[in-house]
Design a protein around this nucleic acid. Structure first.
Lengths: 237, 237
DNA sequence: CGGAGTCTTGACTCCAATCAACAGCGGTGG
DNA sequence: CCACCGCTGTTGATTGGAGTCAAGACTCCG
């Protein structure tokens, strides 16, 4: 029973049934502000899962049976680009919804892959429909989160797919991977940065190396620490 | 009263109150399948507007008071890129929703500008809330359309922001601007293509000119006619 | 220790950005 | 009416940045 076990690569472990009442607090992700009675009697239970790096939540084309909420960690959504090779469409951290196709019951549009060890809640489609039927308020939450996801997609377009390569790398670290206040973020592999920014791994490597030489960033234990001031300057290019 | 008048540049005309019952047919955009009683007694009327090219529906940062449905024409959503210059995030045709921020009442994320003469329905936020309260079914429609919009955003990422410039142009014409069956589409200005593909106007001009020389496309009266076979080949680059 | 995978660095090529000039077109006003 | 102007699109010459190909260095593990 791996509740506290460290998660190795591609490992998936069942942590337990989620106590969704805890998520009905105002700061909850999806069920915020919903009545406890509804959440106490779910048709199908919500499972909490622990996932090792490189494991997959689902693959593109599958029928979407589950919606996931990210509790800790990082998930990437990957699509194959027509020019060949995988393209990361966005990365999703705690508080995000993964697999919103499950709301409408269509096929998953992406492959969802774990970047760093992650905990998620897996919500079956039936449970979602059940709760939404009893608490229409849930629709409002879903729409709000959908709006937020759309904002993220737009940021990938304007911020990570536009302009010079070095500006894109800087903006990735500053805006996409770190909280507004913080000056650290997870260190993605060069390959992941490459697939997210649509530049080659060599170019990413060169730029990151150059930032290090300039003392703008430090990398250790899978974390990046950076000088927000300096990087912001580089981000305008 | 400009119902049938031709729309000149930057011109906005009021066509009339929309008869939303007509949109309750199964093929309606937003109000499909909703009961006529609700639609007959709207708190605030839905206006139909005619818009000339280069007029704007709203600008980035404004509070979102209206949701728009596109009936005919083409709208572009524009954001300023951090590297300077405007970036078109997506283009929306008939059946699309523009200004979904109005659902949550936040600020508009983009500036919405008219590309070719367009007719829209302008739905006030209060009307939306009113109808949604009486017909929760509306939420389902909204979520589905939001999902579709997200798919479009993802296509801009994987298809229009990735790979060689000539492939991007080809995919823009084939997938983004034309219906699956058809072999024609509206002819965007080079500048708009440029802002959508994140390449310079000169590069777009050169590529389009080259496609014409190869007999892959013909341009006349603001329309483009193309050889789907041949362009598909160029799209893989 | 060895080997696979990831990251780095170098040398070279090439595509697209830049700078610049010009053609076409519609509109405006003398 | 025609000359002028602004706007859009085209084309050329040149530059620069990122892609490509190739060789090492490093890290993590068995």
């Amino acid at each position: 029973m791996g509740t506290n076990a460290k998660l190795r690569c591609r490992e998936v472990s069942w942590i337990g049934h989620a106590n969704c009442k805890l998520c009905s607090r105002p700061d909850g992700v999806l069920f915020a502000g919903l009545s406890n009675e509804v959440l106490d009697h779910l048709l199908v239970p919500v499972d909490q899962l622990g996932l090792g790096a490189k494991s997959t939540l689902y693959v593109q084309g599958e029928t979407a049976h589950y919606l996931f909420t990210v509790r800790e960690g990082l998930i990437k959504l990957v699509q194959d680009a027509p020019s060949g090779g995988p393209r990361i469409v966005r990365v999703l951290g705690p508080g995000s919804l993964v697999g919103m196709e499950a709301i409408t019951g269509e096929a998953y549009r992406h492959t969802a892959e774990v970047v760093v060890p992650t905990k998620v809640c897996r919500i079956p489609r039936e449970t979602l429909k059940d709760v939404a039927g009893k608490e229409p308020k849930l629709y409002g939450q879903l729409l709000q989160i959908a709006q937020h996801t759309l904002d993220q997609a737009d940021e990938v377009i304007t911020s990570l797919s536009t302009g010079a390569a070095q500006g894109r790398v800087a903006r990735l670290l500053l805006n996409t991977l770190s909280e507004p206040g913080s000056n650290t973020c997870v260190s993605l592999s060069r390959e992941d940065m490459s697939a997210l920014l649509s530049v080659t791994v060599e170019t990413v490597s060169r730029i990151v190396a150059e930032f290090k030489r300039q003392g703008l960033i430090k990398e250790q234990h899978g974390q990046m620490e950076f000088d927000r001031e300096g990087l912001s300057q580089a981000a305008t290019l």
